[in-house]
Write a protein that binds this DNA or RNA. Sequence first.
DNA 1: ACGATACATGCAGAAACGTGCAACAACAGG
DNA 2: CCTGTTGTTGCACGTTTCTGCATGTATCGT
Lengths: 262, 262
Amino acid sequence: MLAAERRDHLLDLLAREGKIVAKDVAAGLRISEDTVRRDLRDLANEGLCQRVYGGALPVSPAVVDYGARQTVAPDGKRKVASVAAGLVRPGGVVILDGGTTALAVAHALPRDLACTVITHSPPVAVALLDHPQAEVLVLGGRLFKHSAVTCGAAAAEAARNVSADLFLLGVTGVHPEAGLTTGDAEDAAMKRALAARAADTYVLASSEKIGTASRYRVLPWEEISGLVTDEPAHNPVIEQLTAAGVDVLPAGAPSPSSEVSA
Amino acid sequence: MLAAERRDHLLDLLAREGKIVAKDVAAGLRISEDTVRRDLRDLANEGLCQRVYGGALPVSPAVVDYGARQTVAPDGKRKVASVAAGLVRPGGVVILDGGTTALAVAHALPRDLACTVITHSPPVAVALLDHPQAEVLVLGGRLFKHSAVTCGAAAAEAARNVSADLFLLGVTGVHPEAGLTTGDAEDAAMKRALAARAADTYVLASSEKIGTASRYRVLPWEEISGLVTDEPAHNPVIEQLTAAGVDVLPAGAPSPSSEVSA
DNA sequence: ACGATACATGCAGAAACGTGCAACAACAGG
DNA sequence: CCTGTTGTTGCACGTTTCTGCATGTATCGT
């Protein structure tokens, strides 16, 4: 592995996970901790990370005007996005919805993951520009500015010509009775069209969405494979969904790792 | 093996694997590491790769990144973009190319201008999100990451279904004999397809493009209506173009443009 | 306060680097 | 056909850079 490549890897790790533990990286890459420490020291000198005891952290968001918006993403969305990104298999084909949560998923994808991403969201496409191994297909159409996605007849038509293993669906409301909802009729139709083209559909549901409903129904529960949320499993709504047979993937607690340090 | 062939091989390797290890390439091609190093040094001088200890990496994403480049858009591009934005009539339909200069045009468009913008560039689409009066049509297709535009058969197909008053074309080279050129064959084809759908085609040519040529021809002079540049009119290349009947719109000096129409 | 862990520094071997040089091929001109 | 020129390639040499280990110091958690 080239030294510069290692450096990129560290920055990538920092962006995706929000921290670096020198020991873990050294073990992961089979190199000495000294080398990792030296790299981190250099990166810190260039202002690309903040050195702390045991590893490094991102520089304060105010300084990173460049990637500011992605770091501003609320913690809940970051966690959901991280778990959802893990659903994308190397070599797999995923349809990525629009919206801020889906955008966070794009940012959370490992930079060197070889996969195909289909999206009707220009911001998602832009976010994937620096993922050299990701094949990106953009679905064209009329730009719906509120959600920053393409929609309309042309977009629906384009959607009919693709298929995928997985659809990561963003919605504005997740409600036991109302199902999955969003605020625009055309947007809802587009999401349905996309869901129809994927073998599995997983919903990205950060906690503020749980229990709320918007005007337009996207899909009923039966047509989705699962849901990723940072809401605790004991939330009544979540329990209800679990009982209804929805595969709920928790994104909240990094739970069982406590015994590792012990 | 020819030297040029070797050079292509290196670039290809860089594109496919994201890195080059000098030692491995030398062993693979049965040539000395010195030769590989020399090649890499040359490629780096041409800005086609980034030299690092042990090999080379693609040009640093930070340098290529559009988000970064748009904020540091050179003065020349800003001037060109400003003049080009003036070519868009209220209620008109314009096709906006990809690339940093076209992106600068998107930013230069008055925020309340009511017009229709057709683009195959996700960054341009994103830039127009806060233009409430602008109707934006995105042409879908496979994302070509280097230029951040969609291309390929799907994009060309989508292009066939639109027409416009004006096409604002970005290129990498503007040369009296070579014509308008760019660095990628598919990208060139897409630009041709777009030019065919517009009544008028104007070239965005900030001064650093003037007099240079890239590998792939986009269009001959006869097929464009004009050219916007911040290069002074007395530049030999510009004079040659003017003599050839190209409508040159100056973006450098705020001076009267009387002689342009003459 | 103590042990454990992380750290900075110096050092040495290894690897990569740049440069100069010579051998060689391609080419132009006589 | 010969010859001088130019450009490329591989080798040799000395230099720089990188990396892991050892040492002693600083910091953390208990």
